[in-house]
Design a protein around this nucleic acid. Structure first.
Lengths: 331, 331
DNA sequence: GCCGGTGGAGTAATCGTTTTCTCAGAAGCT
DNA sequence: AGCTTCTGAGAAAACGATTACTCCACCGGC
């Protein structure tokens, strides 16, 4: 593997000049620069990243730590981050925590060890290890959920309001026993969606009941059980607010096996506008979150903070949009 | 940020001893080792990755270069890779090429520059830049599609056979004008699925026709147009083999807008068993590919090759499974 | 008692860049 | 002409780990 000194030798200059020429730094005689470039080309020179990062004390890499690669919401965020990052020459490393505090801690440590320039994270309930980042001074942006204590840049969706609007929509459609299936207690988005649901019931003069609420992992299997459980009660719900798209799959399966038709028998609104939402029968009413935008905004904030870490921490709250389809209409 | 010499000073030993103690190398007096560990703990020491990688001439990182993070098939592969890699202490960097040769080339260069230990890639049609990897001696495993000329470890699905079986299934169900919507020419999986489709027609004594075949990007939008196009012909197809799940979404949308019922009017089989396949009406018949297994096998092969680069290149071909649901039955 | 072997720890070289000095020569000014 | 200023390029010092050597002390065998 060719090194910078091979290039220097071939071009008949010092390594310092090669470095300057290749990085377009300061002023190098154009003729020399051309010679250096040619030499590098001929040797197929690829700079040694670790050496560069060691010297620079920082890698042009952003770490994106999310809780589930298989959730379309997070992959859309990833795209938003990537597009922005790449446009300014940063690479993105995607890390998958599976909502597991140990994995999260491990990835945070890897991020620190590799001296990434910054971290975008959707923290687990405990936000394990993020204080290490703070200690080291690595810029952090939280997405989807805020960090518990640390103040940092944060990009959120007003998910409580969105949940409220979705629930209000169900009330307006005439549903009278509206249930809610949301994520684990302690996960902020899960709590917020539940809170928004309750807000709506209260202002809609409906009485809520713990018997209409279930909490489980953000997965299909858990939601299916929860829904089955709800529908085998004496007074089952006639509508459901579902906190994400994986859960929606479980709920729809449960409805099917109970021979309940979405819309007709049980109104359904779920979070996240997945591509297949329009294909089920009837099409599913959803709360569309601006996932791509979350990612791109987060990346921009992170880059700004990398450039200037003295900026005050900001919180950006984006709006969600209710997309009405058949699953929330009786007719 | 604490360095290894800070730890050494605090423990009253040399940096060499610290390094040995922390890496569990050779023999260090247990008492000393304990002192070192304590010192590291107290200082919150995190080794400097770039420095280590520079010296070791290799990073404990695998690059996974795929063509679409939003495709569940590829995210499932990613999980397979991750699980294996992490179990032996490697990290995984996920890179998204969007089927774009330039991005692919760029990511390959990044992988080389960062001196990753190995690369798993689903190459674009041109496999841009992979020869750089070969030149540098970086181990490579191809997944989903083979590399054009380079011989390397490869993990494939027998997608041609799967397409043939799926098409034969449609023939057996009594469909008589079976069409095919597949990916761009030159993409191996797209070509193979088309070939398998033709194999089946031939042995089923059905006459194929170019008017029943459409090629487009592996995306919903393209497939929707293609399907709309097919159905507005004089003699439209009465069944379709669809080459991936994103395309299936486009096809189902097109069917809906033409008021054609899957199964009843038009038989449908699509590749990839996505979670929502069972939820559409009627449930969709699919070809389930062992995506997670592709990833885990690929990671194992890569790790083996990292350990011993003299091994002969192998090709592993996994089978796919047809899951029959309602969309391919008339009744 | 001497010598080779060995376990355990320190010294210092090394990885390949970037970047700070340093310096030579050209150019500009009076 | 003599002085400063400026420009461009080289020499060499980092960056922080790993590891090949070296060295010391101790042990056992003869």
């Amino acid at each position: 593997m060719a090194t910078i000194s091979d290039v220097a030798a071939r071009a008949g200059v010092s390594t310092a000049t090669v470095s300057r020429a290749l990085n377009g730094k300061s002023t190098v005689d154009p003729q020399l620069a051309a010679r250096v470039l040619a030499a590098a080309q001929e040797l197929g020179y690829q700079p040694n990243g670790p050496a560069r990062n060691l010297r620079r004390q920082e890698a042009a890499v952003l770490a994106l730590i999310i809780s589930d690669v298989e959730n379309p919401f997070f992959t859309a965020i990833a795209r938003g981050v990537e597009d922005v990052a790449h446009s300014v020459g940063y690479s993105v490393v995607l890390c998958n925590t599976d909502e597991d505090a140990d994995k999260e801690r491990k990835y945070v440590d890897v991020a620190i060890q590799e001296r990434v320039a910054g971290v975008i994270i959707s923290p687990t309930a405990t936000a394990a290890g993020v204080e290490h980042l703070a200690r080291r001074g690595t810029p952090v942006v939280a997405v989807d959920r805020p960090l518990p204590d640390r103040e940092s840049d944060t990009v959120l969706v007003d998910t409580r309001l969105a949940a409220r609007q979705a629930t209000t929509h169900l009330i307006e459609q005439g549903y009278e026993r509206i249930g809610c299936i949301t994520g684990p207690s302690g996960v902020r988005t899960a709590d917020d969606r539940l809170a928004g649901y309750r807000d709506a019931l209260k202002s809609g003069k409906q009485r809520g009941s713990p018997r209409l609420v279930r909490r489980t992992e953000f997965k299909a299997a858990g939601a299916q059980k929860a829904a089955a459980d709800l529908f085998s009660q004496d007074e089952p719900p006639d509508a459901l607010l579902v906190a994400n798209s994986a859960m929606a799959i479980g709920v729809l399966e449960a409805l099917r096996s109970h021979r309940l038709r979405p819309g007709q028998d049980v109104g359904v609104v779920a979070f996240d506008d997945v591509p297949w939402a329009g294909l089920v029968e009837p099409p599913m009413t959803v709360v569309a979150q601006p996932a791509y935008e979350i990612g791109s905004v987060a990346a921009q904030l992170l880059l700004a903070r990398i450039a200037d870490n003295t900026r005050a921490a900001t919180t950006t709250t984006l709006g969600a949009r209710l997309i009405e389809r058949g699953s929330s209409h009786r007719g």
